Computed example of a mutant assay.
Amino acid sequence: MKYAGVCLLVAGVLFAVVSRWLGGGPESVQAAGTRYTVTVPVDPVEVRVTSGKAETVTLAAAMPGMGHALPPVGTVQAGHGRFVATENMFAMDGVWELSIILSGDQGEEMITISMLL
């Protein structure tokens, strides 16, 4: 029975990888916290604050399955509610967790999303 779960997990990851390779992967990931809502295009890394007014955005990426964690990266504002990473965020393809730390007039909040690259 435990092998069935592992097989389903592997099948899901393979489906996502093949879909992305063939151009069928998600173009962006959306997430909501209590103070802010964001949309993150998969490539390039940009945070679009769609609800709430963030003044600063910091990003931290981790690849838990591989034991990788990268130091936080700052962003620059590229328009109203748009923040672009100042450095390359991802060292390799795979499943990453992106922590988005937003700060503004509504306080500070961290929103974490999973992305397949």
Rank of each mutant, 00 (worst) to 15 (best):
13 V>S: 01
113 I>V: 11
38 V>D: 11
1 M>F: 15
26 P>K: 11
112 T>V: 12
60 A>D: 05
39 T>H: 13
51 S>D: 15
114 S>C: 08
22 L>T: 12
111 I>R: 09
24 G>D: 02
52 G>C: 12
16 A>N: 02
28 S>N: 08
49 V>R: 13
100 I>F: 05
21 W>N: 06
73 V>D: 06
42 V>A: 12
100 I>A: 07
32 A>Y: 05
109 E>H: 06
38 V>A: 07
46 E>K: 15
49 V>N: 12
98 L>Q: 03
27 E>A: 15
112 T>W: 02
34 T>Q: 06
51 S>I: 04
14 L>Y: 01
57 V>K: 04
49 V>H: 10
54 A>P: 13
26 P>A: 14
113 I>Q: 05
74 G>S: 11
62 A>G: 07
76 V>S: 15
22 L>E: 08
109 E>A: 05
96 W>F: 05
98 L>E: 03
34 T>K: 11
26 P>N: 09
34 T>R: 10
60 A>K: 15
85 A>K: 08
35 R>N: 15
70 L>N: 12
92 M>L: 09
43 D>N: 14
87 E>G: 06
47 V>N: 11
42 V>S: 05
89 M>D: 05
19 S>V: 01
106 Q>P: 03
23 G>A: 03
114 S>K: 11
83 F>V: 13
23 G>S: 04
98 L>T: 01
23 G>P: 04
70 L>W: 06
111 I>C: 07
59 L>H: 06
87 E>I: 07
14 L>F: 01
95 V>K: 05
16 A>M: 00
4 A>I: 09
3 Y>A: 07
102 L>G: 11
71 P>I: 00
29 V>Y: 04
74 G>Y: 04
88 N>I: 06
31 A>R: 02
114 S>N: 12
50 T>A: 14
31 A>P: 02
97 E>P: 07
65 G>K: 10
24 G>P: 04
110 M>G: 07
89 M>L: 11
54 A>T: 10
117 L>R: 06
